[in-house]
Each structure stands twice: as structure tokens, then as C-alpha cells.
Design a binder for these strands. Structure first.
Lengths: 120, 120, 120, 120
DNA sequence: GTGGTCTAGACCACG
DNA sequence: GTGGTCTAGACCACT
């Protein structure tokens, strides 16, 4: 289930959007699966429907879901494609960080060790 | 010199704080060196003094500088220590990202390739 | 056969209307040919009859079909006339777009190239 | 000045966004020029500030403007770049329409005549 | 003062 | 019932 953390620096609608994208990437939803309705999710999370609406609009902009008037919101692509895209984004961030660490004089072995720890 | 980019998504005070931390890490300032006064830096950058004040407060919170009432703001530690700390922070972020990529099923070789590209 | 794409940004009734008009223009229906009944088409496409009803109303508004109470819906004109009208509509849109591009300072040759590419 | 037409099928925020983009493309605003504030434009057009806010968010998404918290909204790129992009979009639409007309059996000369009329 | 977010309540189009 | 839009009013962060 989706959890809202009011101490999070991200705004509520971003948390909702990120959370649902996360689940979509994880394959929790099958392609074309219907998401909870705006009003339903709003009452579940005790959040204003407008905020959920905004989160769904954000996800549509990201290409994660598509919406059909009068029917609901649906997962747009298969989780595999979303996963590939997400991994690619992470790679971009890692590259930037590694370059930054290098320019600070970090040891090549140190940097490699970060990866080896997690990457087994 | 410090450059402000109004198109940057970061707020002004964050840009100032990040810029000064960057310089401190790079060794531009010697330990206990005095930073420009709030007013002076404000006029130099054509920015509201309140914004500089906030940037300095942010840096104090990060432990990069310390302030002495009636005297000014000073670099808190030597650049070497700051550099180590910064590298450590980057390492933490990289580890998190790598772990995240792994849990998404990213190939170990793919992840290593991110690092190898930049790490030479 | 008519195909409904729920990912299409157009609403269902618009897709149905456009699809039938397309077939009429292509000459799939002879003039005064009877269209499937609202209920029949609804069950065929697994769609609410109200939606089909609205699509037919839309087509009547466009002058593509006419309805006779108690009898059904029929193609209003021959495909040749429909085709001419459709082409004329497209021409109107192209003229508007070209004028718009011109006023933005687009090169005459550039604009001609758009047409030449497709128009062989 | 910007005009809102309540009979327009487009929503209000879209009309505002399109209108401002139009002006930006036309070079009415110089690069980095400040747009009217959300509240000011709202009162000018007798529209809710939230709606203007949404229009500005839309424009930021399109890359037409950028916003700085506490300062305002500003034109992001030079009008020349925007104009090129816009012309390119129009070209795409024209190509689609021409292809469609061709498939309906429209005469090549007829299609060319559409362009010639406007393109002098 | 500025933009950004959230809530509450309402209306419309679509199915 | 669904999503989409708009209004009104409020609060926060930033300058």
C-alpha cells in the first residue's frame, strides 16, 4: 500500500506519483490494469481528490499511465519497458556522481568498492 | 567567483551555499579563513542580504562554516576533511542507487560499466 | 471492422463516429445503406448503447448519416460526395496551417517541401 | 493583450498557455523577460490564480518559461528557437494531412494549390 | 511581494 | 460512476 510521509520534503502529489510509478516498475500492476479511481484513492489516503488528480496528471505526463474519461486511469506500458527506462535514469545519476567523486580526488578503488558492496 | 543562475531549479540560497561549499572543498579557502560578510557578498551578487544570511545558516548546519558574533563567518575545517566527508556522502548516494538498480534486476556488468566509464 | 483503442485520447463515441465516417468515405457503404442498429453495434463492440447513440448523433450532425425513426440509421450521400467534402475540409486546415507558418517567417521552400514529400 | 473565449472548446488554462506561447514565439517578449505575476494576470483576466498557475506550469513543462520562487516567471529561450520548434510542429501536421488527403484520392495539383494560395 | 501546494466544494463531459 | 476543470481561500517557502 501507498504511504504518505508528511515530513518528506517532496510534495504529496509527488509522493503519490513516485509511489505508483515505483509499483508499476516493480510489476505490481499488469499492463492496462486499472488504477484506483481518483476519489477512492483520495479517501483511502485521506487526501483531497484534487491532489490525487494532480499525481495522476503527473504520471500521464511521464508516460506511466493513460486516462480514459468516464472509465478510469490505466497502466500504459509493460513493466519491463518502464524498468529499463528507470535503470537508465539511475545509470545517468551514478555516472554524474562518480565523475564528481573523481574530480574531488577520490581513489578509483574506493569508488569501485561502493559498487562491489551492493552489486552481488 | 560565485555565479547565480536564475534558471536553476535550486533556490538562490541553495546555489550560494552549494557554491561556497564547493570552493571550500576544492581548497580555495584555507581553514579558519574568513568568508565575505553578508552585506558585502549580497552587494557583489546583487542579492538580498537575507538570502545570503540563509545560505550561511545552511552552511553552518552542514558543518562547513562556523560563525562568530560580531566578527564574521569562517571555514570550519581543513579542505581535506571536507573533501573526505563529501566523498563519503557521494559514496552513500551511489550505494543507494546501485542497490536500487539491483533490486530492479539490472545486470551487474551494466552497473559496473557505469563506473568504469567515468572512473579512469 | 471497427476497432476501439482505449488508449486513444479521443473519447469512445468520437472514435466510433470517426471510424464509421472513415468507412463511409472509403466507400465501404453504398448510399442509403443501413447501418447496424445501436444495440447491435453496442454488443459487438462491448460498449454502452448510449455511447453508440451519441456517435450516431454526431454523424448526423456532420451530415454523414440520417436517421429514420423506427427504421434505423442510413448513409446520407454517396461516398464520392463525402470524399470531396472531406478533402475540402483537409484543404481548409492545410491553408490555415500554412498561413500560420508563413506568419512565423517559415521559408516558402520549406513549406513546399512538406507537401512534396508526401504528395507523389 | 490576452483574450479568453469561454465558448472555446479548449480549457481556460490551455487558452492562457497557448496565448502566452504565441506571444513568446512572436517575439513579443525578449529572452528572460518577466511575465506578469500569477495574481496580477489572474485579476486582469478575472480568472482564479490557480488557473493561471496551472497555465504557467504547463508552459514550464513545454519549456517555454522557467519559474523562480519568490521572484516570478520568465521567458526561457529566445523567440528564434521557439519559432523554429513551432514551425517544425506545423510541418508535421501538414505532412499528416497531406498524406491523408492523398489516400482519399485527392489530386496532387489540388493539394499544391492549397499551399500556393497562402504561400507567397 | 513572489511562486507552489493543499483543501473544499462545485460543475461538466463521458460511459 | 468516472476523469477534468474551475473557484475560493488558505498556508508555506523564498526574495
Amino acid at each position: 500500500m501507498l504511504q504518505i510521509d508528511y515530513r518528506d520534503t517532496r510534495s504529496i502529489y509527488e509522493q503519490v506519483a513516485d509511489g505508483i510509478e515505483e509499483m508499476a516498475v516493480r510489476g505490481v500492476y499488469t499492463p492496462d490494469a486499472q488504477l484506483p479511481s481518483v476519489r477512492q484513492l483520495a479517501t483511502e489516503l485521506s487526501i483531497n481528490p484534487n491532489t490525487i488528480q494532480r499525481a495522476y496528471a503527473e504520471l500521464e505526463g511521464r508516460g506511466v499511465i493513460y486516462s480514459v474519461k468516464g472509465k478510469g486511469n490505466f497502466i500504459s506500458a509493460d513493466s519491463e519497458a518502464l524498468r529499463q527506462r528507470k535503470i537508465c535514469e539511475i545509470g545517468e545519476q551514478v555516472r554524474t556522481l562518480v565523475a564528481s567523486a573523481r574530480s574531488l580526488g577520490a581513489d578509483a578503488k574506493t569508488i569501485e568498492s561502493w559498487v562491489e558492496e551492493e552489486n552481488k
